[in-house]
């Protein structure tokens, strides 16, 4: 297999390992729910609903096995003029957003992430397709990064 894409030689800043716990917990919950659905459906005699639910649960289980590696694949770099973001193992994706193009920076905390003290940071540009969302930042890191990015975006703001 040819080597993976690696657009930048610099060190990637990785997300908190606790994010693995958040995502695993999420998978466990969804597996439990779908299994419960499967059991209830089986007992009610809805055979193939149970089958579908069980299949979903099984595939979630397989996906869950890759969670640690997938979380470790997230990364970002604050380069001189842009933010570089990466995600994905099998389907790799790198996004570069020049600081001046950021319209706003969101910090989100889901219920599971809050348990672990983590936040997601989302960058919004004028293009809906940008879709950069850095998960698994500790709350302090997220706030600090947000303030830093907002400041950079302010000083380099360009027109639309």
């Amino acid at each position: 297999m040819p080597p993976r894409l690696e657009p930048s030689d610099a060190e990637w800043r990785r997300v908190s390992p606790k994010q693995i716990g958040v995502e695993l917990l999420g998978s466990v919950i969804s597996i439990v729910v779908t299994l419960a659905v499967a059991i209830v459906a089986f007992n009610l005699g809805a055979g193939w609903v149970a089958l579908v639910a069980a299949a979903i649960a099984a595939s979630s289980l397989v996906m869950a096995a890759f969670v640690p590696r997938r979380v470790r694949a997230y990364g970002y770099q604050l380069r001189e003029d842009d933010l570089l973001f990466r995600r994905g193992l099998l389907f790799q994706r790198f996004v570069a957003v020049p600081y001046g193009r950021m319209q706003l920076v969101d910090v989100n905390r889901g219920p599971l992430a809050r348990l672990m003290g983590l936040s997601d940071l989302k960058l919004v540009t004028a293009a809906a397709t940008t879709g950069v969302s850095i998960p698994g930042l500790t709350e302090d890191a997220a706030t600090e990064l947000r303030d830093h990015l907002v400041e950079l975006a302010e000083s380099r703001r360009v027109g639309l």
Binding site: L5, L90, F91, V97, R101, A126, V132
Partner: peptide, 10 residues
């Protein structure tokens, strides 16, 4: 242009 992405699947 707002941003750029580079992607690669299997």
């Amino acid at each position: 242009m707002q941003s750029v992405a580079l992607a690669q699947g299997p």
